[in-house]
Design a binder for these strands. Sequence first.
DNA 1: TCTAATAACCGCCACC
DNA 2: CGGGTGGCGGTTATTA
Length: 340
Amino acid sequence: MPFFDRFWPVRSVAVLAFDRVIGFELGIPCEVFGAAGRRADGPEISSGLYDVRVCGPSHRLATNAWGDHVFGITPPHPLTAAEDVDTVVVPGVTGYQEPAPEPILDLLRRAHARGARIASVCTGAFVLAAAGLLDGLRATTHWAAAEDLARSYPRVRVDPAVLYVDNDNVLTSAGMAAGLDMCLHIVRHDYGATVAADTARSIVMPLERDGGQAQFIAHPDPIGADTGLQPTLLWMQDNVARPLTLVDIARHAQLSVRTLNRRFREQIGSTPMQWLIRQRLHRAQQLLETTSMSVEEVARRSGFGTAIALRQHFARHIGTSPLAYRRAFQTPRPVSRTSH
DNA sequence: TCTAATAACCGCCACC
DNA sequence: CGGGTGGCGGTTATTA
């Protein structure tokens, strides 16, 4: 994996289009990857960090999530244009019980075999599963389809509570808008937290809606169901640098520790400390990219306390070391962001 | 890398 | 009753 490339080469993404593709989800990777590295407020439109190609046979029918044919699409690239890309994205399809076209499955298998990253949105996970790419892996899909996925593909560990699952080279995301979160996550992996934050701002998205679709499953009537954790989450984000304990958080939320844990599980799909560690990692990434602080100092300011703890969590969640991360993302400016 | 101490997590269940 | 709460204690994860 070219994770350590210093000069931020343009990466290529193929978005597959076939019949009954959900139009909205087809557009998600086009917009997110299309926005990366570009300045929405600049005098001219610069070129982006991704070369995004919509690939597929011509004259496909796009649907909304309910299967209504909403418009026709003519992909500008044939499927063969996906042969050499770094990343292949499979949007959701309606009527996912029907088998995906064999050429698509074949394309995915070969792309995966040559080391490309494969990502799905929503029911696109069924296509990945049909290609055998999810065997033995954790994966997610739209919560309403999760049971079907688990039943149809017993070898896939389906987690209906999260927004997306990252298995390094195979990613799946939950329904519809969760594709935005996954694509931003990929941008962060490829180009760092700062570029990802710029991208999120550009498309008017929060950088990370933490936690999962659990919050969307459990509360069909949000009026009566006061989630109430939001202020606590914000408070935690503001206080990541402090050594917070469960007792501290529970006190702020005015809940018992037991109920706090329960609410996080139900509404966020995570635990308080796991969520906090995520926030701390984001802070650390930001500091590593935008400052030249020592790792010890970064650790202190991101709430890990010691460089040892920071390195541990970095290795586990980011897959590299703080200094290697900085080497990859700090110094160089994106090649496409030319000043004039 | 190992190890001990500490904290977090979560099933269980009595209790609003 | 039905639904939520929170203390207890054992297991798991994190820290020193």
